[in-house]
Write a protein that binds this DNA or RNA. Structure first.
Length: 498
RNA sequence: GCCCCCGUGGAGUAGUGGUUAUCUCACCUCUCUCUCAAAGAGGAGACCGCCGGUUCAAAUCCGGUCGGGGGUACCA
């Protein structure tokens, strides 16, 4: 149900403040997906007009985030484009020019009132003092303005809001109307001459010929202001049309609160560190307000772009559910090509200090062999890549350095000592190759049949001895990878603590 | 106060006049089984915020109401 047939141009325009937030990335993803779906253009612009809060570090993190996720942009910072520059801090002269035209055209006016004066006037008139700016300076004479300047006051520039309702058709919510008089005249340029977001954002969207503004619901209430500004820009010949707006639902955290920057779950990089894959995380983020089909929620990025339409976005607030996100990620891990999965484990092992190399290609021969054999053992047992440290860590530590989980050790039954003794005796006789096909029957015969112990109780002490944990990859394959000497050494080590 | 948005099982979600109200995750049980997963089978869980109206018939249309969220900056 497209209203416009012009090529789609969308943008992602974060402020470089703080660490990338999952809600911000969700917004980026939807813009990107819409551009890719429609064959349109995805613009990446940086809104760094607040020197007090913006930082280069945050800018770098934004780039890092988009590159990690594979959300590529057609125009914008780093890559350039026909409407460069794409950092607002480098476009200041343009804003001054537009502001001057808005003033000259009567769309904006100079305002000298302080907030205290506005409030005082509301009180004096018996109105609610929190009503907002009252339009007092709308029609000041030259003499009045001169008098204020003589007092040393520097005026702000305010947009003149119309005395009519402002209606626009939101792509997600349908028609939205703001009642006449409910949106006060707002500031677009500070007394210092510094332009504000309310001016700069629509001016750049117009300059960059943005056709669809897809952003968070938190900006919904600023839309009537922008629509009015846009209309002025159109009349001034500075914009072609008013773009279409679509407001994406909030991303909620626990309870009924917006997921805030304070919540650890909101930090994109935390998820990366824990071992979310780009595929898994993006898949989950796409589910925050959208779904590909009623009976399906695991999909690839190409499937997403093929199916995505802003019109299908649901207006309800979406809750960020880590459990669900992890389940989606686990499904993606299982779908990975075995070699791909294996390669992705290395950085996590490296980070934990288990292997000296940070990439598979740089791995030593022995580590490489262990990982080649170990990765397939855990691929369908993991939710996050970071779990590999716990799952396969035992393969990469010296016998003396194996940490045995205290709880797992304490949970062993009385016959554990007997089991370990008997297992050690039997395993001594298994050939050096230590194949699972040899150890399993030997241990079964000795422990299950010989001692009459149920398999789960017979093998648990061995699992704890060999891997240090109660949950591990399959036992016999683990022993095979570890080799006969290490396996026996670890069994002996645990035995002495019982 | 004023303005705007939202309201279907624990979470997400399908469903715009007639269905036993969809599916996924989570949860419970069972099968498989050396642990954990995976896989397979089954189960519990919402009368669609509430009230009223229109209609033979409403989660779906209308009115009202309550609840939650957001905005109301010389922040973005």
């Amino acid at each position: 149900m497209s209203v416009s047939s012009a090529p789609v141009r969308v943008r992602f325009c974060p402020s470089p403040t703080g660490t990338p937030h999952v809600g911000l990335i969700r917004t980026c993803l939807f813009n990107w997906a819409y551009a890719r779906h429609t064959g349109g253009t995805f613009v990446f612009r940086i809104e760094d007009t607040d020197p007090a809060r913006d930082s280069d570090e945050s800018y770098d993190q934004l780039l890092d985030a988009l590159r990690w996720l594979g959300l590529d942009w057609d125009e914008g910072v780093e890559v350039g484009g026909p409407y460069a520059p794409y950092r607002q801090s480098q476009r200041m002269d343009r804003y001054a020019d537009v502001a001057a035209q808005l003033l000259a055209g009567g769309y904006a006016y100079e305002s000298f009132s302080t907030p205290e004066e506005v409030e005082a006037r509301h009180k004096a008139a018996g109105r609610d003092p929190k009503l907002g700016y009252d339009g007092f300076d709308r029609d000041l004479t030259q003499e009045q303005k001169a008098a204020y300047r003589a007092e040393g006051r520097a005026p702000v520039l305010r947009m003149r809001m119309p005395d009519t309702d402002v209606t626009f058709r939101d792509l997600v919510r349908g028609p939205v109307t703001f009642r006449a008089g409910s949106v006060p005249d707002y500031v677009i340029v500070r007394g210092t001459g510094h332009p504000l977001y309310t001016l700069v954002n629509p001016v750049d969207d117009a300059a960059m010929k943005i056709t669809h503004v897809l952003r968070g619901e938190d900006l919904l209430s600023s839309t009537p202001r922008q629509v009015v500004l846009y209309r002025a820009l159109v009349e001034l010949g500075l914009a072609d049309t008013v773009p279409q707006f679509g407001h994406l639902p909030y991303v909620m955290g626990e309870g009924n609160r917006k997921l805030s920057k304070r919540d650890p779950e909101s930090n994109l990089f935390l998820h990366r560190e824990r071992g979310f894959t780009p595929e898994g995380l993006l898949n989950y983020l796409a589910l925050l307000g959208w779904s590909i089909a009623p009976d399906r929620d695991v999909f690839t990025l190409p499937e997403l772009t093929e199916a995505f339409d802003i019109a299908d976005v649901n207006p309800n607030p979406a809750r960020f559910d880590l459990k669900k996100a992890e389940a989606i990620n686990a499904a993606h891990l299982r779908q990975l090509e075995p070699a791909d999965f294996r390669d992705r484990l290395v950085p996590y092992l490296h980070q934990a200090g288990l292997v000296p190399a940070a990439s598979y290609a740089d791995l030593e021969t022995r580590d490489r062999a262990l990982l080649d054999a170990g990765a397939p053992l855990v691929q369908e047992r993991m939710t996050l890549l970071g779990e590999v440290v716990g799952m396969l860590g035992f393969l990469f530590v010296a016998d003396a350095d194996l940490a045995v989980d205290a709880e797992a050790r304490a949970g062993l039954r009385e016959e554990a000592a007997t089991v370990l003794d008997e297992a050690a005796r039997v395993l001594e006789q298994v050939p050096e190759s230590f194949l699972a096909a040899d150890t399993q029957p030997a241990l079964s015969a000795a422990l299950v049949e010989g001692l009459g112990i149920k398999p789960r109780f017979a093998f648990t002490p061995l699992r704890v001895a060999v891997t240090g944990r109660r949950v591990s990859p399959p036992l016999f394959e683990s022993m095979e990878l570890l080799g006969k000497a290490s396996t026996l050494a670890r069994i002996a080590a645990l035995r002495t603590t019982l």
